[in-house]
Nucleic acid binder design. Structure first.
Length: 286
DNA sequence: CACTCTGTTAGGTG
DNA sequence: CCACCTAACAGAGT
């Protein structure tokens, strides 16, 4: 998503599509949530077209289609990297975008782009289409708002931007954890919604290298790390993950092999940590 | 052709 | 049983 600047910002009212190219994490899913809420609520779903049943999880395509035909989407919430769509029926919908998923709201007659997997066709002759190049995400049918029937959601750690997620909670979660910080932030059962890119960003803003362990941080470092979790995600949501607003102070827009640190100008270090590529600044992160 | 990218989980180890 | 680690998968891009 972050590497598609020419399509930003998404325009809700003339229904320009939201394209997520890569790596939807909490802020990206939040953009998608707003997009769905702006475009797709309170309209009857006349039909559900499933082009690739692989992305429909846990129930058959037929069940999925028949349970959601005739409903209206009433509310869109987010839990970690999941979008939770409440309908006016006993069935609700959860959407995970995997690595490459996105949504587009377009007139029903518009040609299908190559990777449309499912289309919800509304009464007003517009579609909400789930588009995904790689099929790592999926659509889940849940009953009576019980999103905890999805194991990943059930096991999720706290929602980082929830005001109830306080430093005390963060500190107690951090006790007895010996994994590298990078691996810890990738763990959705530790804190929900952070992925490879924003894990690097949080550690960059906190000035802490990804290989370190949470048990060896000073109280001041731990406190700062907690603040940066909130700050980074809040800022990315504020700018709707648009690079322009982030490029002067954030690592993310420069997170590529040629990129340099926006604070000191040095090249980034990269390494595989927890089998994921990490970027960090040797000078700014200790 | 070999290998990259990442979110999630399965499976192994201690 | 849990914390942790690694491999595997999806597939187009390099």
């Amino acid at each position: 998503m972050l590497s598609q600047p020419f399509l930003w910002p998404p325009t809700f009212h003339n229904y320009k599509m939201v394209i997520v190219n890569d790596m939807p994490e909490l802020p990206d899913v939040e953009v998608m949530r707003k997009y769905l809420a702006e475009t797709s609520l309170h309209k009857e779903v006349k039909d559900v077209e499933i082009f690739d049943g692989y992305v429909v999880k846990e129930v058959s395509s037929d069940t999925f289609k028949s349970c959601l035909t005739g409903v209206r989407f009433e509310k869109a919430e987010r839990r970690g990297k999941f979008l939770e769509v409440f309908t006016d029926s006993e069935y609700d919908l959860a959407i995970h975008f995997g690595m490459t998923g996105c949504l587009e709201y377009v007139p029903s007659g518009r040609d299908y782009q190559k990777y449309v997997r499912v289309a919800f066709k509304f009464q007003n002759n517009y579609d909400l289409r789930y588009v995904a190049k790689r099929k790592l995400g999926g659509l889940y049918l849940v009953e009576n708002g019980d999103f905890n029937s999805i194991a990943t959601i059930k096991n999720m750690g706290p929602e980082p931007l929830d005001p109830n997620f306080t430093f005390d909670k963060f500190q107690s979660l951090s006790k007895n954890r010996s994994a590298k910080l990078k691996a810890l932030f990738l763990d959705q059962s530790f804190i929900a919604g952070i992925g490879n890119v924003y894990a690097d960003e949080v550690l960059f803003q906190a000035g802490i290298r990804p290989q370190r362990k949470i048990s060896e941080l000073s109280q001041q470092e731990l406190c700062n790390l907690f603040k940066m979790v909130k700050y980074v995600l809040k800022t990315a949501v504020h700018y709707e993950t648009n690079f322009e607003g982030l490029k002067d102070a954030f690592l993310v827009p420069h997170r590529n092999p040629e990129g340099t640190c926006p604070k000191c100008g040095n090249s980034f270090q990269t390494a595989k940590i927890s089998s994921r590529t990490s970027y960090w600044c040797e000078h700014c992160q200790k």
